[in-house]
Amino acid sequence: MKTAVIVFPGSNCDRDLAVAIETITGTAPVMLWHGETELPAGLGLIALPGGFSYGDYLRSGAMSARSSIMRAVVDAAGRGVPVLGICNGFQVLTEAGLLPGALMRNAGINFVCRDVALTVDNSQSIFTSRYDAGEAITIPVAHHDGNYFADDATLDRIEGEGRVAFRYAEAVNGSARNIAGVISDGGNVLGMMPHPERMIEAAHGGDDGRRLFEGLLEAVA
C-alpha cells in the first residue's frame, strides 16, 4: 500500500513517522517536500508530521497550511483519502481548514514534553478501531501550542457527532473539554497533539500508539 509523509521546512518527526509506517506496513512511505504540487496516484494515507514548520512563524502551522502541497492534500482529503496529522501536523490541518478549531499556546505557558494519559473517546473511526471505547492509554506529548480551542457550538457539534477521538485524562495544556484529537466530518482526517509514532514498541517505553497505525493501515490496505 502506498503512503506519503509530507515534509515541511522545520518538520522534525517526519523520520519517526516514516519508521512507524514502515514497521507496520513493511513498505517505506514516499517522503514529499512541501513545495511539490502533486501527490502520487493511489495513496492510501497522507501523514503530516510533528515539528516546528517555518519556525511557527505567524501562528503554528499557518505558513505550512498555505504551501503548494497542501492544496493537493486538501483536494485528496475531499475525495476521502485518509489524512493523519500529528502535533504540528494537527496545527497545519486546522490552519488548512480540514479540521475545526485552533491550537493555541498552552494555558500554563510552558512547553510540555512527557508521557500523558489519554482516553479513547471514539473507537469506531478508521483511526481508533483497534482500541476500546473508554480505554486508557499512554502516549507522549511534546508541544508548546496544544491548547485546543473552538467555540461552544463547534465543541457541542463535534462531541455530538462522535468526532473527539482522544481526550487527555489529566491536565496537560488547557484544551477545551480535554480534547487531544479530532476527526473531520467526513471521518477520514484525524489531527492529534500526542505522538503515537513515539510509542510503537517496548523499547519506546510502551506500544499504545501502535494500534492506531495497525488499525488505520489495515483499514486502508
Binding site: 505567524l58 490552519e95 480551542f149
Partner: peptide, 9 residues
C-alpha cells in the same frame, strides 16, 4: 481572512 489572522481565535 486567508492568512494574516485566524478568525477562529
Amino acid at each position: 481572512r486567508k492568512l494574516l489572522a485566524n478568525t477562529v481565535i
